[in-house]
Design a protein around this nucleic acid. Structure first.
Lengths: 145, 145
DNA sequence: AATAATTAGTTGACAAGGAAACTATATTGT
DNA sequence: ACAATATAGTTTCCTTGTCAACTAATTATT
């Protein structure tokens, strides 16, 4: 197979897998009233301790309008606090609440379980190879978009 | 790294790459008034010569409601013909039009170009490794969802 | 210091995609 | 043959995500 032949197959598979994972994520998070994207934003706040929207837009490469709306939803669900920043009055600090922490942990539990399931029958070395390949692809796409 | 550590990173990367590719696809197809999903449905009709919605729903793993709407749009754009089937009056044959063929080819041209760009600096062997990994992952996820 | 240009975040309008109910036709079981 | 069930596709309603215009605050320019 030539590069020309292989490239579109790789793209096709990545799109297919991405879609499947998103659907599956949404499905698993359903009981928490969150979808995969919303969780990734919540998780990012959880990890950082204290962030503003801008840094999340950069980190997760999302639309700022979208992040703004999700933040509103998460705040409405009392999963995060919003504290006005002193240095820059345009932006606020997003901080996870106790309830938010509990939610993140509960979600993670389900995800860990699922990860155990799908990695059950594959050797670690193959996973490592896959990760390396993904890293290469990711950097190639980052450069060429 | 253990499986437990590596698994969520792989998932994260796949979601990230999938999102990037979708965005990039939408962007490239913009001049044709199509998005990545719509093109994949159009392309599937183009490839098959003659299909009904059901087989596309199966092949591409999409919601039938969604496919129905996209088919309507593609028909409205005169990219496909809809011919009632004789064997089953509930379903119709979807057939690409001349205009549709032209559109597919024009889209492919752009995509080929982009594929050349991002594969320019990577060896074929690495692409092959990546494809193999993706195939493994895809089948794992298919089993575990 | 005053004006212009950026930047953080919000809002509103709109397209995309998913779930469920629905229509019309086909298939199955008795 | 007839009722029950299943299937192909459509429609409706709702949420999500994108784009563009906007507000308010900040930084840069003269």
């Amino acid at each position: 197979m030539t590069k020309k032949e292989i490239a579109p197959i790789i793209i096709g598979k990545l799109l297919n897998i991405g879609g499947m994972l998103q659907k599956n994520g949404n499905y698993m998070l359903q009981p928490f009233d969150l979808n995969q994207q919303q969780f990734s934003i919540l998780f990012s706040i959880y990890e950082s301790g204290k962030v503003n929207q801008k840094s999340m837009v950069n980190k997760l490469v999302l639309e700022k309008a979208h992040v703004s709306k999700v933040v509103k939803k998460l705040h409405g669900m009392e999963l995060i606090d919003i504290k006005p920043s002193d240095d820059d009055k345009r932006s606020s600090w997003l901080i996870i609440t106790e309830k938010g922490k509990k939610t993140v942990k509960a979600c993670q539990k389900i995800m860990y379980k699922w990860n155990e399931d799908w990695t059950k029958d594959i050797e670690l070395s193959k996973l490592q190879t896959a990760l390396e390949s993904l890293q290469v692809l990711q950097s190639l796409f980052n450069e060429n978009t």
